[in-house]
Amino acid sequence: MTRPPDERPDVSGMTEAQKLELGRHFMAQVRWNAELGIALEHIEPGRATLRLPYDSRWVGDPSTGVLHGGVLTALLDACGGAAVMSHPTGAIATATISLRIDYMRGAEPGRDVVATAECHRATRHVAFVRVEAHDGARPEPVATATGSFTIERPRPKKETA
C-alpha cells in the first residue's frame, strides 16, 4: 500500500480524534480498502487498528462461508502501511516491499476481522512491521503477518544563501 506523496501533515497539535479523522481521510482515498469496507479504528504512534466487516461477497469457501485469505491480504497490508505512516520517523509515503502471511485458522463466518499492526523498527529507508488479525471468537489470531515497507521522506530543502 502506498500513500499520496503529499507533505506530511503536522499532527503535533492534533487531538486523538483529529488524528483518527486524518487517518480515515487517507484510508477513504484507497479504493480497494473502501470497496472491502476496511475502516481505521485506532491510530497511535507506530500502531494502527483496522476493521474488515464480514461480507458474503468475500467468501473463499462457499461450503463454510469462511472469508478468502486474499481479503485478509488487503487488511494486513493496509494495516501495516497505516502503522508505518503513523510512526514518528515521519514518512510522507510508503510502499510494501514484502509481506509474509501465516494463516492459522479460518475466520469465523459472520464475524468481523480486526487487525493491529505495530511498526517496531524504522531505519532511514525501511520500516519493519508485525500484524495480527483476530475475529474475536477465540483468543488466538486468525492470521499473522510480518512485512517490510519503504519509507519515503521529504526531499531535503535547498539551503538558501
Binding site: 500500500m1 500513500r3 484507497v30 479504493r31 480498502n33 478468502h68 491480504t73 488487503a74 497490508d77 510502499a95
Partner: peptide, 24 residues
C-alpha cells in the same frame, strides 16, 4: 477495474488486490 486502485496518485493497483490475485 477502478475499484482495485490502492494509490490514487500513482494510479497503482492495491497490493492487497494483486496479492489476492496471486493466492487465487
Amino acid at each position: 477495474q477502478e475499484k482495485l486502485i490502492g494509490n490514487p496518485v500513482l494510479g497503482a493497483l492495491h497490493g492487497g488486490a494483486t496479492g489476492a490475485f496471486l493466492e487465487i
